[in-house]
């Protein structure tokens, strides 16, 4: 890639909805199994391990990761890499409770990286709420989509 040549535009995907159609429930059994992989005991008050902020939003959003990549004109087999995550909790996550996921793609920005060549930075926001609309958490993930064929 000639560094002086302008990069082709990234696909225009900002604003595309990631809202899920099916509520997500954190199973108490699965929470127990997840805690076992970390070597910790599950909470006795019915709260779920907080890492379910990531799992619940990722599974409950309206697309799989492969479909999200495809929306960005990217093949999941080309190796998307998560680079950062932030989350703000309004309340703890509980097992056996229905959660609804809403969200959208915030942006897809094309960059030239010394290490990866041409790549797109995909940023999307997901929110988890109770069925009555009460906010539970908001999370933002950033992924790198390496565009090796453009490098």
């Amino acid at each position: 890639m000639d560094p002086l040549k302008p990069l082709p535009d990234a696909p225009s995907v900002a604003g595309i909805s990631l809202s899920g159609k099916t509520p997500y429930v954190i199973s108490a059994d699965e929470n127990r199994a997840l805690c076992a992989t970390i070597g910790v005991a599950p909470a006795e008050d019915g709260s779920a391990h907080p890492i379910y902020f990531y799992i619940a939003t990722q599974i409950g959003m309206g697309m799989t990761v492969a479909e999200l990549c495809k929306t960005c004109d990217f093949d999941v087999e080309d190796g998307p890499m998560i680079t950062s995550t932030k989350v703000g909790f309004s309340q703890p996550l509980m097992t056996e409770v229905l959660y609804q996921v809403t969200g959208e793609i915030l942006g897809l920005i094309r960059k030239l990286s010394r290490k990866l060549g041409v790549m797109d930075m995909l940023e999307y926001e997901l929110r988890l709420s109770l069925p009555d609309g009460t906010a539970v958490l908001k999370t933002t993930n950033v992924w790198v989509l390496p565009r090796r064929h453009l490098s």
Binding site: H49, I55, T83
Partner: peptide
Amino acid sequence: GPANLAYVISMLQSAFPGARIDTLEVRY
């Protein structure tokens, strides 16, 4: 990556029993 992050969260829960995590911001 989320499994790695789960170790960090469990460390916080162990360091501050009964605390509520309000925000978390990490780079992988």
